[in-house]
Design a protein around this nucleic acid. Structure first.
Lengths: 183, 183
DNA sequence: GTCTATATTTGGATAGAC
DNA sequence: GTCTATCCAAATATAGAC
């Protein structure tokens, strides 16, 4: 079915009537497919995560800097391509909406995949994953909030990736050093 | 007047009735002070920016790492102390709301002050300011979205500050080098 | 300047014909 | 399964008494 159509548009302040009209239907027809408006949100949430995972490029763990650049570019492009989807999936500021456990599990999986990738790339000190998500989310968030459609922040991705990998290595080094010291 | 009271609570999905009740009034009484709900948003936006500026700590430009740590701690604490205020001021996802030119000017001023501070601290290569705001916003955004009230991201602030200053210096160095090369 | 009462609009959801 | 018609609740905003 073509529910993906409405995804590209928006829903933060959209009514069921608006959503329905965009896909050439009347509002009540939506209830043949979904129990409530939140069920629509949830389906879009799950759909968004699946698409994020499916289209994610393979990134080399043998060259962490290049790999992180690739991954960050993809993430930020995904977020800025559809700010409303970004809001639904990552900002979670839709009033009253929380994804169902099943949908949420999808996003947890995706995060674990990122964690595994970072480990494989040798970037696995505590806090490294969270630092990564903060940097990537920050670039996307600033771009969407202050200059949607522009590149004032997206053009910093490569520099940010280098910065992150450098810091991740420092963190790992510190961990090793303090570990030795403790022994 | 005590309109600041409602600021601490929330408004993303709040009605005028809710706002009014929190300050011990009835909804229509608000119209003695504001022309519309958006006018309330705008007043809260301006008020939030003013408070952000007023309470900002002095940070030493003589020790950029320490200064950035101080500033980032303050920014993230300000954002996480009141996620709804954060949404209103920095995420800008309140449906239909845009600050008035006068209110917006306040936030531009604040950003220019940050830029001036960074320059004074010697961190003034192109993109440095935007990298700073991305990192700070990313930490706040992730904390609020994924673990409101926790410290999973806030505890990374000092590390992030060190990382940022290091990168800012790299960027400045590169600029100087490429400048020489061009000459 | 604050209240009660109410107008007006809008949005989510249901009923029932086709 | 999609439509029209409609119900019901909630929200912004206004009118007018006090």
């Amino acid at each position: 079915m073509a529910w993906e159509l409405c995804r590209a548009e928006g829903l933060a302040g959209l009514s069921l009537r608006d959503i329905a009209r965009r896909i050439g239907m009347q509002a009540p027809s939506l209830y043949s497919y979904f129990d409530s408006k939140h069920a629509i949100y949830d389906a879009m949430f799950a759909d968004g995560v699946r698409e994020f995972v499916a289209q994610q490029p393979d990134a080399p763990t043998t060259d962490p800097v290049e790999g992180v650049k690739l991954r960050m570019r993809y993430y930020v492009a995904f977020c800025t391509a559809d700010p409303v989807r970004y809001q639904l999936l990552f900002q979670r500021t839709i009033p009253g909406f929380e994804p169902s456990p099943e949908s949420y599990a999808l996003s947890v999986e995706s995060l674990q995949a990122l964690e595994a990738w970072l480990r494989e790339a040798g970037l696995d000190a505590p806090g490294t994953l969270d630092l990564y998500t903060a940097i990537a989310a920050g670039l996307a968030s600033q771009q969407n909030a202050n200059e949607p459609g522009g590149d004032r922040w997206t053009r910093l991705i490569d520099e940010a990736a280098e910065m992150f990998v450098h810091q991740a290595r420092v963190m790992k080094q510190r961990k090793a050093t303090s570990g030795r010291r403790k022994k």
